[in-house]
Design a protein around this nucleic acid. Structure first.
Lengths: 126, 126
DNA sequence: TCCTTATTTCGCCATATGACGAAATATACC
DNA sequence: GGTATATTTCGTCATATGGCGAAATAAGGA
């Protein structure tokens, strides 16, 4: 029950669900998820750690960048089935479709440039 | 997405999940769910209304009693699949098994007696 | 070593959620 | 109609959650 509830609670936030859907079939750098969701880096980092704790994603650190991808082997049965369900139900969802389109643009920019522009944008606010 | 999130959020509470599992294959009176979960009537009523809004259960009023059961035809695809998943994942869960056992005892008492004893128990506290 | 920068952790705030009891509602029974 | 009672609604409270910015951490490059 505990594992199951951890998975369900991890899914109980639209931004986390959008992040999971964005990770379908590809790995994403944190800055790319930040760009997609339009949230503060600290917020996205927290969301990803919740997904990780529920065994829905795994992370990998390469140089300064952290990459997340959907958990496969390391996912618990609960997590694995949740991911299957998510994809079955939401692949055709409007929000997810829009994210998928926007992701194409985001992926065209390399992480280096993306992070730089995010830092500048934050600097411009203060 | 909205429907999907409604379903997920409805599942994101252990007491609601326990209530859904208790409703497998049978209809239950509110007082029976109150007895099972050990929560205040108002709390259980609120939980059931959240499950109802997510289309996971339907209710029926007969006399003074309100009965809830799992939604079948009236469930959205999201809700229906969630129920299937729940049962697949949690049928062997320890908490659910314990509830199932306790439910057998509860079902042996008729609702009338059950409600009366609940009223008395609440009266005894004040 | 020092500097830059991507990410995470922490502290704080606003809102959401789940709990209860009291009051309102609905329905049977006299 | 009036009373008893099962359930729901409402008000309140404590805690959980999600958001941000600032500071800490980690890792590459000068």
């Amino acid at each position: 029950m505990r594992d199951f509830m951890d998975v369900i609670k991890a899914l109980a936030d639209e931004n986390r669900v959008r992040a999971l859907m964005a990770l379908r079939g590809r790995e994403l750098c944190v800055c790319q998820i930040i760009e997609l969701l339009g949230l503060a880096p600290s917020t996205v980092s927290r969301h990803m750690s919740i997904l990780k704790q529920a065994r829905l994603v795994v992370s990998r650190k390469q140089g300064r960048w952290a990459y997340y991808r959907l958990a496969a082997d390391s996912a618990t049965p609960d997590a694995r089935e949740a991911l299957v369900w998510l994809q079955a139900r939401l692949s055709t969802d409007q929000v997810v479709r829009a994210d998928t389109r926007r992701l194409l643009t985001i992926l065209r920019t390399d992480p280096e440039t993306l992070c730089r522009s995010q830092c500048q944008a934050r600097g411009a606010l203060s």
